[in-house]
């Protein structure tokens, strides 16, 4: 067929009914036209792409990457700042807590010291009072003891006299002393 169409007239690839004789793809008469316009098309697309479209898209993409990187950097910075702020807050909180604890401890200490002082004072007072009381009691007891001896001596002397004896002061004293014991 190829040899046929080379010599044939222009209409050799189409029959009288307008349908193709053989494959239209193989009709050599039509090929130069397709090839020519294909080359024009390819050159046109190549220039559209290489002169305008591809640099533009590349710049948009790199710009976007840049923006994203910047945004990410800014976000990172903000995050760091937030972390810093949080740290400062935590530190302030810890300080405040420590201070409060110190105040509590100090107050407790003060109170304890006051309490100790008061307790000591009270103890001393109590001890003093006790000593005084004991002294007073001892005095009273001593007085009472000596009174008892005197009363006993007088009673004994009265009894001896009432019984018709003669009150020998020395004997009575010795007897009373022997009876009461070494109390006074």
């Amino acid at each position: 067929m190829a040899t046929e169409t080379h010599e044939a007239t222009a209409g050799a690839c189409v029959d009288a009914g307008g349908s193709a004789i053989g494959m239209p793809q193989l009709c050599a008469d039509w090929m130069p036209n397709q090839v020519f316009w294909l080359l024009v098309t390819l050159v046109a697309i190549y220039f559209i792409l290489s002169r305008v479209a591809l640099p533009r898209i590349a710049s948009v993409l790199s710009e976007r990457t840049g923006t994203i990187t910047n945004d990410l950097g800014a976000a990172e910075e903000l995050k760091e700042r937030a972390a810093e702020a949080e740290g400062a807050y935590d530190k302030a909180l810890a300080d405040a807590r420590a201070e409060a604890q110190a105040i509590v401890a100090k107050t407790k200490e003060d109170i304890q010291a006051d309490l100790d002082v008061e307790l000591q004072k009270a103890d001393a007072e109590i001890a003093a009072r006790t000593a005084q009381s004991e002294k007073a009691i001892a005095e009273i007891r001593d007085n009472a003891m000596s009174s008892v001896a005197d009363v006993a001596k007088e009673t004994a002397a009265d009894l001896v006299v009432a019984l018709g004896g003669k009150a020998d002061k020395k004997a009575i004293n010795a007897a009373v002393k022997a009876r009461i014991g070494g109390a006074s």
């Binding site: 222009a10 130069p32 397709q34 020519f36």
Partner: peptide
């Protein structure tokens, strides 16, 4: 006319 290499066809 016959399709020359420069003709504007439906391919074009």
């Amino acid at each position: 006319g016959p399709i020359a290499w420069y003709s504007i066809t439906n391919v074009t």
